[in-house]
Simulated scan of single mutants.
Amino acid sequence: MFRRRARADRAFREAQRAGQAMLAMYAQQPRPTDPGLVAAAVPATPDAVEFDFLPPDFRAPSRKDVEGFMMRWDSPLVIDGEVRQCPACGAYRNWIIFNLRDDSVWLRCRAGHETKETALDTAWYNRNSGPADRWHPTLEDGLRYLGH
């Protein structure tokens, strides 16, 4: 009975270590100094500059083999100083957050209501999510794994 749990825990710890090693390796690399690369990566308005620490190969929208990523967010979701609530039922915690290939972020409450969150983007998702530890063939499998 406990072997399966120990094996899953070990696999999860290995995925975390691999993610931490990748982040440490990327932190040691110098930032690009070519003005063309920097200009392409920086938005036109200086107020909207937000650094995405992941290299392009690891960002969700560039992945061709997946439709998106999902993670669980149990605590209240605070964006710009406001706690987000489900517009349909008023729930404010236990979210599933989806990051889709088109750089959109969607929220799903416990009751199954989904809403697009325009204040969040892929860079926010990448900063707040851990390494992906599982691949799910269907949305229902992913939701079941995350407890929804």
Rank of each mutant, 00 (worst) to 15 (best):
R17G: 04
V83A: 09
P55R: 15
H113A: 12
M71F: 04
S75H: 08
F51W: 11
S62I: 01
T138V: 13
R5I: 11
S75T: 08
P87Q: 00
D141N: 09
T138P: 12
P131T: 00
A24F: 07
A88W: 04
A44F: 10
A11W: 07
P87Y: 00
A11N: 10
D9I: 10
E67L: 08
A11Y: 12
R93I: 00
D133H: 10
D52K: 01
G19D: 05
A11T: 09
D102W: 06
D102N: 15
A44I: 05
R108H: 05
E50S: 14
D9N: 07
A27K: 10
W124C: 12
T118C: 04
A39R: 06
R5L: 15
L100G: 07
F12E: 06
N94R: 13
E140N: 10
I96T: 02
R84M: 00
R10D: 08
A111S: 15
V78D: 13
W95M: 04
G147M: 05
A123C: 12
R134W: 01
A60W: 08
F2Y: 11
V66F: 08
H136S: 15
S129C: 09
A40Q: 11
L143V: 01
C109L: 03
D47S: 12
I79G: 10
G130W: 05
W95L: 03
D80E: 06
R17N: 10
G112F: 02
S75V: 06
H136W: 02
C109V: 04
F69R: 09
C109G: 11
S104N: 03
Q28W: 01
L120H: 02
V105M: 05
R134M: 03
A44S: 13
P43W: 04
K64R: 10
F98C: 10
D65F: 12
Q16S: 08
W73E: 08
T118L: 11
H113E: 01
L77H: 05
A8M: 14
A27M: 12
M70Q: 07
Y26S: 10
H136M: 14
D74K: 15
H113K: 03
G147I: 08
G36M: 08
G81C: 03
F53A: 14
E114V: 13
R3H: 06
M22Q: 15
R4T: 03
T138C: 12
D52G: 09
W95Q: 01
G147F: 11
N126Y: 04
H148D: 11
D133A: 14
I97Y: 02
L37R: 15
H136N: 15
A27S: 12
E67Q: 14
G36P: 07
H136V: 09
E114M: 15
Q16G: 08
F98L: 13
D47E: 15
A11I: 00
L120M: 14
H136L: 14
R7I: 05
V66C: 13
R101N: 06
T122A: 01
